[in-house]
């Protein structure tokens, strides 16, 4: 998969480690979009390098947040998607009643 060195994801025993389910979804989206020819994996890598490279504060490094940002920026560059749509839908989803979605 060639995300090595600076841009390597958290790994254990050769497998990518996801701390939370959304991380796996985002990872899956990037690979699937690439497989469907929406962008090349090299393009994505470059975006990810930019994203992680611009990160200066070493206090709260979260790989998959950079990964997510790199993916959305690349999709915007390719004019496949706009961040406004994401903001609107995220607000709608956040407003869902979730009395049951307890915090664990």
């Amino acid at each position: 998969m060639e995300l090595k060195g600076l841009i390597a994801p958290p790994m254990a025993n050769g497998d990518v480690v996801f701390d939370e389910p959304w991380q796996s979804r985002v990872f899956g989206m990037a690979r699937a979009l690439c497989e469907q020819g929406m962008f090349t994996w090299d393009e994505f890598r470059e975006q990810l390098i930019l994203q992680i490279g611009s990160f200066t504060d070493d206090g709260d490094y979260q790989y998959f947040i950079h990964f997510f940002d790199a993916l959305t920026l690349l999709l915007e560059k390719k004019q496949l998607f706009s961040k406004d749509e994401l903001v609107v839908l995220s607000e709608q989803l956040a407003a869902r009643p979730h009395g049951h979605d307890h915090s664990h």
């Binding site: 979804r25 469907q36 998607f81 994401l86 995220s90 709608q92 956040a94 979605d101």
Partner: peptide, 29 residues
């Protein structure tokens, strides 16, 4: 951590948008 963290919601929103645009299927992910 809750599944409903802001980042989880953003990821869910992104997936829905991409699926709606026909760029992606849930199965591919």
């Amino acid at each position: 951590m809750s599944e409903e963290s802001p980042q989880a919601i953003r990821a869910e929103a992104l997936e829905s948008i991409l699926i709606e645009k026909g760029l992606l299927t849930a199965k591919a992910v």
